[in-house]
Nucleic acid binder design. Structure first.
Length: 475
RNA sequence: GGCGCUAUCGUCUAAGGGUUAGGACGGAGCCCUCUCAAGGCUCAAAUACGGGUUCGAAUCCCGUUAGCGCUACCA
């Protein structure tokens, strides 16, 4: 049984890199019919915050992928400590009494261990510990008996590191708290994690982890490291320097569909190798394979002006267009309210949805694309009313004529409107387009809009006539 | 500095010894059209650099350069 885990630490917001790691884990597990474990790696008490934890839940819940088991490392500290001391008992770890301030002597030089501590006798070590002297528990890297540590990564292939280049890393801090390496491996072993998919920044840590797993006497899980997500400036994505664009909730708030967002992220660093781009969640589960994962970092393409990767936008638009009208209308409701359209009822949105479905890339764009369905367009420049190759007089004439026609037309539907308005244009000896533009601007407040007749139909005769009057007054 | 990893159009990627180096987004143009979209068609756009190996290299090897990561009692 495949068991994977996603192990965020609540020291920051859930950003899209973390989300992608979760997605890949989820996809991998579901593809194999396995189990997804969510584990909060909160052993760094100093930096943990509740808001980070909330942000992680919020982001993860929005993805609608779910998980099967849940753990918090802070509730499993005894397990981690027991594991660490088991390693110590086997002689594979030792107490280091060097004060913390003295350890990082010179970070630019290869530090391996603090002098004198490795070879402390068990008796002396116990004695000093009993006397209350603080210490960290360090792993005793077997540099003499073993030339290198070899890992076969499912993405990066065989990678190895000389033990002579591996420092004696800490297992337990002087506070007794486990380090990330210790807690992570003890938990992975205890939770019987079979496949570890995580960011490539952990590739170098993997050698240490292999040593820990071996010391624990457990099988080393399969490893698959994922290429990192970078910002266009070449730096790793970070909330501090790149702003809210890296936060999952930003995508949610802008009106991404969760499965479109998942679709986008799944395609960065991974390829189904069949030129497919728009993929449903089920298709992703079926197609997902570690073979398709890349080894090089990928850049998310955003700018200050456009915070979302154009491809993410396009994919979202694709998924939006694939939604059925009722579903789309339902999803639009909160965004219409957010835009300030207090009169945006589900019924009205249901009527508008077909008109904007192919014109929005984000659900929030209902606010800019469909505004005139909810508020009177009055701020436009009267010059906009003037049709191409026409003048103000032509605009006024077209407006007057359309008012006359629209107030008497027998039905207010597409076919009737189409026929009546075209006939009116002919009567005035102007082109249909010259007839339509003043109406469009009067009714929508701008030159770009959904198709005119459908728009008029949704707006209704009274509203349309009122707006034509207003336009006539300013033209 | 040491160690590890990586390098194909602007971006995401396919091709893993033999292809006119393919697709997608974005860009440009044309068509469709009541505007805007959507849709259709077309075009521009890449194997980091230098050496090998080979009949043949984007692909294998070495070097250079660049980027990223690790080098903590952070994760």
């Amino acid at each position: 049984m495949t068991r994977v885990r996603f192990a965020p630490s609540p020291t920051g917001y859930l950003h899209i890199g973390g989300a992608r790691t979760f997605i890949f884990n989820w996809l991998h597990a579901r593809h194999q019919g396995g189990v997804v474990v969510l584990r909060i790696d909160d052993t760094d008490v100093e930096r943990n915050t509740q808001t980070s934890l909330d942000s992680i839940y919020e982001g993860l819940q929005w993805l609608e992928l779910g998980w099967d088991e849940f753990y918090r490392q802070s509730e499993r500290l005894d397990l981690h400590r027991q594991a660490a001391w088991a390693i110590f008992e086997k002689g594979l770890a030792y107490r280091d009494f060097t004060p913390a301030s003295a350890t990082p002597e010179n970070p630019t030089e290869g530090w391996l261990f603090n002098p004198g501590m490795r070879e402390l006798s068990r008796e002396e070590s116990d004695r000093r510990a009993d006397a209350g002297e603080p210490f960290v528990l360090r792993f005793r890297v077997p540099r003499d008996s073993r030339p290198e540590v070899v890992v076969t990564d499912l993405v990066y292939g065989v990678v190895s590191k000389a033990t002579g280049d591996l420092e004696d890393f800490a297992l337990l801090r002087s506070t007794g708290m486990p380090t990330y390496h210790m807690a992570s491996c003890a938990d992975d072993a205890d939770l019987r994690i079979t496949d570890i998919l995580r960011g490539q920044e952990h590739l170098a840590n993997t050698f240490k982890h292999v040593l820990i797993f071996e010391a624990l006497g457990v099988e080393v899980p399969r490893m698959a490291h994922l290429p990192l997500l970078m910002a266009p400036d070449g730096a790793k994505l970070s909330k501090r320097v790149h702003g809210p664009v890296v936060s999952v909730t930003t995508y949610r708030d802008a009106g991404f569909l969760p499965h479109a967002f998942i679709n986008f992220l799944s395609l960065v660093g991974w390829s189904p190798k069949n030129d497919r781009e728009k993929l449903s969640r089920d298709e992703l589960v079926e197609l997902f394979s570690l073979d398709g994962i890349n080894r090089s970092n990928a850049t998310i393409n955003f700018t200050d002006e456009e915070p979302f990767d154009p491809k993410a936008l396009w994919l979202n638009a694709e998924h939006l267009r694939a939604l059925d009208i009722d579903d789309l209308a339902r999803q639009l409701v909160p965004y219409a309210h957010e835009a300030g359209f207090t009169n945006a009822t589900p019924e009205k949105l249901r009527a508008i949805a077909p008109l904007i479905r192919e014109r929005i890339r984000l659900l929030s764009e209902v606010g800019t694309v469909a505004d005139f369905f909810f508020v009177e367009p009055k701020g436009y420049d009267p010059a906009e009313l003037i049709p191409k190759k026409g003048d103000a007089a032509m605009a006024a004439e077209a407006l007057r004529k359309s008012k006359e026609v629209l107030s008497t037309v027998p039905a207010f539907d597409h076919a009737t409107l189409d026929e009546a308005l075209r006939a009116a244009a002919e009567e005035l000896s102007i082109k249909a387009g010259q007839m339509f533009q003043p109406i469009r601007v009067a009714v929508c407040g701008r030159k770009n809009s959904p198709p005119l007749f459908e728009t008029l139909e949704v707006l209704g005769r009274d509203t349309v006539l009122t707006r034509l009057d207003f336009a006539l007054g300013i033209v």
